[in-house]
Structures are given as structure tokens and as C-alpha cells.
Computed example of a mutant assay.
Amino acid sequence: MKTMKRKHLSTKRAVRSSGSSTRSASTRLNRPRVRAAAVGKKRMVSTIAQGPDYLAGAADGKAWRSDPAFQPGPEAVRIAIRERWSLRFRETKRNNETNWALVRRRGLNYAAGFMQGSGARAAVTPVPLNGKAAAIVFAGMKEEPLRQVLDQLQALPLDDVVIVASNPAERLFALARGFGNVTLVSVPEPLDADVGRALGAKLTGADTILFLDGEQAVSADQLAGFIWACQWEMDIALNDISAQMGLFRKRGGNERLFEFLNVSLQRGDLKINTLSALPYAVSRRAIESLGIGALAVPIKAHAQAILNGLRIGIGGAVGGHRQRRGTRSDWRRAAGDHAEAWREAFDVRGNRLDFADWTRNRSLLGDWEP
């Protein structure tokens, strides 16, 4: 009985469908057009995937594969893509091509074509370089967080990865040896993280230096934006944490100091973003302007960078790096660092930091100084 009922319902639906008089001729005529539109969309997607960067990558990958010196392996693939993509980007870059999202898409298309043409695969995040890039990491005592950080860095086009650790365990040395371009620097005594990163920066001559937290991994895709910014646009690429600000009354004391420092130096557009929030990247020009030692006190280096007229902007927005409220001693230290930054600013711009005094006519005093 159940079977018969199903057949009856099916037949009934078929009759309704075929015998309906409400279907208009225009509806039937529109059906081929919908199909044509769908086919056109598929062709458009296929064209994007097979665009000039993809095709160039496929040709380069095929040529690399046929080279007598060809050596397979993920690291060899990454190096080959890095060198050839940087060269192609320089040759095809338009003057106004500064949008990282578009550049990133081009790089991914090229890498996909290269791996298709070569038949080799690797985890790679293509960034067109105009020089060398390096990463500086201050490591904690735990092995697994550092491994996660290095796994992400491995996909980036880095010449050097310098890890600075305070009296590290032997297992950290074993971990570092598993990555080809990693140097582990062991400091026997306890070391402040900012000082450790500044020390690591002395050991590389790269044109762009990326500074990272060794206990919090950030995806290679996010880090790539910082490298791009300092290679082609900026001297300092900051981490944008302004989305985490919230109401002023709910902010921590450090965040209020960060914002006040930027406003007082006439860079209110930076909001609470400073060199105190990892990750960030700096150019060789910034290093030469500030000096390596300045990076040991990031907030003071930030103020100096503004005073020196360096190009400072946003390299990306990495969440989870909100400044902790910390202890009273942490707050006092942060306040002291900011005091140093303002003292530096007063020496350069005067006691009013170039803000005009609209209520007092000091010119009546002539050359008198208080």
C-alpha cells in the first residue's frame, strides 16, 4: 500500500508539472540564457586561475624542473618561487600597485602555477622582495609554542631567523637545528625580551626585519603583510590593535599612554598602535636612523621614529596581542619609558612639542627664558 501511494503522489506531481498552464513562454525562453550566464561565470573563474601570473609560474616551474641542477624538496621549491616571483613582480609591477591584497593574490596565482609546472609542492607564502628579509624571535622556555612560530616562518621568504633565548634547554637547540636558516643565540643570564630582540637585530644585515613573540604563533599569511609593507612602502609597519581599544574608561593605563604619546607627537592617526605591540617590522633605513640600541626601549624608539620623520604605518592587524594591565611595577616601568620618550621629544620640538600657545603672548618677553 505504501508503495502504491508513493507512485500515485509521484504521478500527480508529474501531471501538475507537465500540464500547468501558468508557466509562461518567457520563462521557458529565459532558461538558455541562465545556462549561458552560468557557463560564462565558469569561464571567467577559469580565466582568473589561468591568468598571466599563473601561466608565468607554470612556465618557470617547468623550466626549473628540467634544469640539470634540479633538486627536489620543499625548501628548494620555496627558494625557487621566492627568487622567480620577486623578479617577475619587479618586471611587471605598476607604479600604483601598492594594495597588498591584490599583490598577495598575484603571488598565490604564481606559486600555484609554479607548483603545477614543476610537479613539486611546498607550504609557501609568496612575498615579492626588493632586498633581504629576516625575523627576530625572543623564545620562552616552552618548545611547542616556538615550534609553531617556526612552522609559520618557514613559509616566508626569509634569509635569516634569529632566535634569542635566555639559558635555553638543549631541546630548543635540537628544535632550531631542524630548520635550515635558524640561528639560536643563547644568553646565560636572564634577559628582558625587548633587549633580547634588539640583540638579535644586531646579528642580521637584512633590509627588512620582522620582530615576533616566540610564545604566540602568527600565521605566515598575516606576517607577509608586514614584510611587504617594509619592503615597498614604509620604514616601520605596526600591528594595528586599535580594534581592541573599546571605551576609554575600560582601557588599561598603558593603552592610554600609547594614544596620548601619538596625539602629542601629532600622529593621532596611529591611535594606540606603537612599537610595543608585536609583531612589527622595520626597514634597514629605520635601523640606521634609530640605532639598534633604541629598540631595547620600543616606546622610546617609536617616539624617535616619529621625530625623525620615518614613514610609519600599519602592516597588519594581528589579534590577541592586547597589552596586559600588569602589576604596579609594570605600570611604573611603562610610565618611565614614556617619560624618556617625551624627554626626547622636548629636546627636539621644544617644551610645547610644536603646539601653539593661543592664550599667552610670550613674544612680549623678548629673548627672556624662564
Rank of each mutant, 00 (worst) to 15 (best):
R6W: 06
A14C: 09
A14E: 10
N30A: 15
R33A: 15
R33I: 15
A38E: 13
K42G: 15
R43W: 10
A59F: 05
A59E: 00
D60H: 12
K62L: 08
A69P: 05
Q71V: 14
L87A: 14
R94N: 05
N95L: 11
W100I: 05
A101W: 07
V103P: 01
R104S: 06
R105S: 09
R106Q: 05
G107H: 01
L108M: 09
A111N: 03
F114G: 02
K132S: 12
A133E: 03
I136N: 00
A139Y: 04
M141D: 00
K142F: 06
E144L: 12
V149C: 00
D151S: 14
Q154W: 03
P157S: 11
V161E: 03
A165I: 00
S166N: 04
A169Y: 05
L175R: 02
L175C: 03
G178Y: 05
F179K: 06
V185A: 00
V187P: 05
E189D: 14
D192L: 03
G196Y: 01
G196W: 01
A198Q: 00
A201V: 08
L203M: 13
A206F: 06
D207R: 05
T208R: 01
E215Q: 14
A220C: 13
A229L: 04
Q231F: 08
A237K: 02
L238H: 01
I241H: 01
G246H: 11
L247V: 13
N254M: 08
V263R: 15
L265N: 02
R267V: 07
D269H: 14
R285G: 08
A296P: 07
A301V: 05
H302A: 08
G316N: 03
V318A: 04
G320H: 12
A334G: 14
G336D: 00
H338D: 04
H338E: 10
E344G: 09
N351P: 09
R352H: 10
R360A: 12
R360M: 11
R362M: 07
L364Y: 10
G366K: 13
P370S: 13
